[in-house]
Design a protein around this nucleic acid. Sequence first.
DNA 1: ACGGAAGTCTGTACGCCGTACATAATACGG
DNA 2: CCGTATTATGTACGGCGTACAGACTTCCGT
Lengths: 241, 241
Amino acid sequence: MAEARRTIDLLWFPEAGEKRRGRRPGLSVSRVVETGIALADAEGLEAVSMRRVAQELGVVPMTLYTYVPDKATLLELMLDRVYLAMTRVDRPDEPWRDRLAAIAEENRRLYAEHPWAADLPAGRPPLGPGLMAKYEHELTAFAGCGLDDVATDAALTFLLGFVQSSARTAAEARDDAGWWEVNGPALAVVLDEQAYPTAARVGAAAGEAQGAAINPDHAYAFGLDRVLDGLGVLIATQRAD
Amino acid sequence: MAEARRTIDLLWFPEAGEKRRGRRPGLSVSRVVETGIALADAEGLEAVSMRRVAQELGVVPMTLYTYVPDKATLLELMLDRVYLAMTRVDRPDEPWRDRLAAIAEENRRLYAEHPWAADLPAGRPPLGPGLMAKYEHELTAFAGCGLDDVATDAALTFLLGFVQSSARTAAEARDDAGWWEVNGPALAVVLDEQAYPTAARVGAAAGEAQGAAINPDHAYAFGLDRVLDGLGVLIATQRAD
DNA sequence: ACGGAAGTCTGTACGCCGTACATAATACGG
DNA sequence: CCGTATTATGTACGGCGTACAGACTTCCGT
């Protein structure tokens, strides 16, 4: 992960440090990061290799290491950058449920535009300006819900976890389009032997209702309602206190 | 992903086909799969390479391809196998909330014992005996909730998605132990400039309350309560119909 | 004006990865 | 006992991240 301090500096001051001496840089951290994002958007995260990004920039692979300490850091920078670019709308006058739904929708759009972002570890996030702006904005949506700071943070984590999880599932479903058509026949041979009555019935019903084995849009809509209902129960009790 | 049919056969009949002619196999699909699981348990998913699994079995890498068409299929077989090995307890006499909490706990234990399982795509699952047994068992926990088949499937997907998401976060937090101690000082320099008042306050409160920046156990407990509350709202309305 | 320092760029190389392909070794059916 | 089916091996290709050494360019201090 390279030196932590270096990463922090790159996040917050991507063009910092007026270098006095030496050859003028032909690239910049931002250009490298943007190229990585464009590549990931167009061809997926697995297309983002140091060699490929370098090629895209017309430079030899090792040159990137002048701007970025390693690939893991590059990915962090990419993630913070797309966080920073999200459009954020505060909705102080709307009811809490609409505010939280809007937060979810903002994140859903992020993952729609940058599906690779859902595959990056969100656990140790890049604590850059993008994440901070995002976190600050999203916390304000919980204002007036009666939750204390700890509960607010937990609730936001819960909400964001759901959206990311949905996005991952959606991305997988996209990749696997047509899988069921191919495997269905072979499976039928194995399955219809009464061994799994409930599974067969429910699976068939769900598949038929959704027009596919997995319907990410339906899963998202269903899940979001449950998430908001669940948070609503908590909010109701807290407000009653 | 190899031929679909081949994969199905491997899932359901791992030791099939009494071969008459030819050299006796020195290995078996099960041994390969079990070695992969042991390796992933001990050293993580990134340690599971064809070369490494082969070495563990005292064989040259290419030999594995006699038993398994490719690495992706091996991972699917590993996943279905740990699904099959889960201990499943039906609880027909307990209230629905306890039943669903037990399902969540079973999955949580799975990911505790095999953290790598949370990193495998659950979107196009390995439709083997393990997943089927798991699915059948977990569906029965929803009996008597008043949900129709489609809603039951969606509710289960929602519940499992939460547990997997939590497990992933927990695994990341485990890897990043000590990260905050290293980065905290550098971050302080950047953060306390009133730019992010809410974020700074809530982040500090949450971190202090949990003894760490991220507390997976707390996040799981909090989230599970919200998940069950959310499903409870749905169940209440369905039963009222 | 110029030599050295600091910074940027490049080429080569190492050890990994998944796996295609050709070949050798083994064991049974006829 | 030969042919054939099956398993095992060795070699090789194209990818990956990046360590390292050296070349090139620019500015500062003298």
